[in-house]
Design a protein around this nucleic acid. Structure first.
Lengths: 189, 189
DNA sequence: ACCTGAACACCGTTCAAGT
DNA sequence: ACCTGAACACCGTTCAAGT
């Protein structure tokens, strides 16, 4: 006689995301997830292939959340330079609010822990759009990469607390962001 | 009667660095290091406090290597803008040559796995020097952070293979690097 | 059809016992 | 003084056995 399902993939991903954000990626074990959803660890393998599979599903959810945050950040702003700055600030705000999630999004992981490329493409669609407005079609991709690399580099150094930042970190971020946005905007003409 | 020492900290760090670079950070286990230096895992604890301690020592060695590579890269170049570009390219070359070492240098790690701040300060001393030449004293720190964040962001996205880069990655790097160096140089006047 | 305990092959780390 | 086997508390994962 079939026993009723006591959990499902959605509950697993939700529990895993919460563990990641409250206790860090090392605490994201199959046993911790199992306990959170009310089963034993082996039962999880009826829903997911492996721990890397859980990480993949969590990453996809985070990527969508970041994409939504970026879209919301530029909504209502007209000037392309201001829209670019809004993207940069929103990325940094997301990283501060959910540091472990943000870090996972850019961590070096085995292939079977990586999301569908389409999901990640959706996340940066907005960045590519704003980059096109800023520098035109020809160099839109390079500009998008410049913006993304800059903000990711800054934020990841902040999160890792490496090369200790002084006190005026916000100012350093604005300084670099404005300079980069200006440099890109100038190439449009 | 005292038994002779069969290993030492230096051999441990060398073995650990080689495992890191050939097999990745997950393969850097106490057992693997112990086997490589010819003892059993528990013996390592006579030389190091913990696995995090091994990681800290490995990171310090990597940080010094990167600092040396950066110093060598600007040697003989006069123009501050060219010196800045040389630093950026040398950082990227180091990351390509030793991807697992480079990634470790910027990974989020527990405090007891982090090097002495002085070691990391030494690594970026050259960047700060070039930044001062480029933008003057007042904004040298912000400029150094801009350069460092840009190159680290670009390289870490390359290494993580996230947001798949197209084929002209080299061109995108040069595009962004030149634009950023120019933008910084302009603020000097 | 789903869930579980037991098991396997690993981890990092501690410690009493050996030399 | 150093090294080791054994042990402890964990991992991820598999699988036969239960319902």
């Amino acid at each position: 006689m079939p026993t009723p399902e006591r959990t499902n993939v959605d509950a697993i991903v939700t529990a895993a995301t919460e563990i990641l954000e409250h206790q860090g990626v090392d605490a994201l074990t199959m046993q911790a997830v199992a306990t959170a959803v009310g089963v034993r660890a082996p039962s999880l393998y009826k829903r997911v292939r492996s721990r890397n599979d859980v990480i993949r599903l969590v990453m996809e959810r985070i990527a969508i959340d970041l994409g939504d945050a970026l879209d919301a950040a530029v909504d209502g702003i007209r000037d392309p330079r201001d829209r670019a700055l809004a993207l940069l600030r929103a990325t940094r705000a997301f990283a501060h609010a959910r540091p472990d999630s943000y870090s996972l999004l850019f961590a070096r992981l085995p292939d079977d822990a990586l999301p569908e490329p389409a999901v990640l493409a959706g996340t940066i669609a907005g960045v590519l759009r704003v980059s096109t407005e800023l520098v035109g079609d020809e160099h839109a991709l390079e500009a998008a990469r410049t913006l993304t690399a800059w903000v990711h580099g800054f934020v990841s150094m902040e999160l890792a607390d490496r090369f200790r930042m002084g006190r005026d970190v916000d100012e350093a971020f604005e300084y670099g962001s404005r300079r980069i946005a200006d440099a890109l905007a100038m190439t449009a003409g």
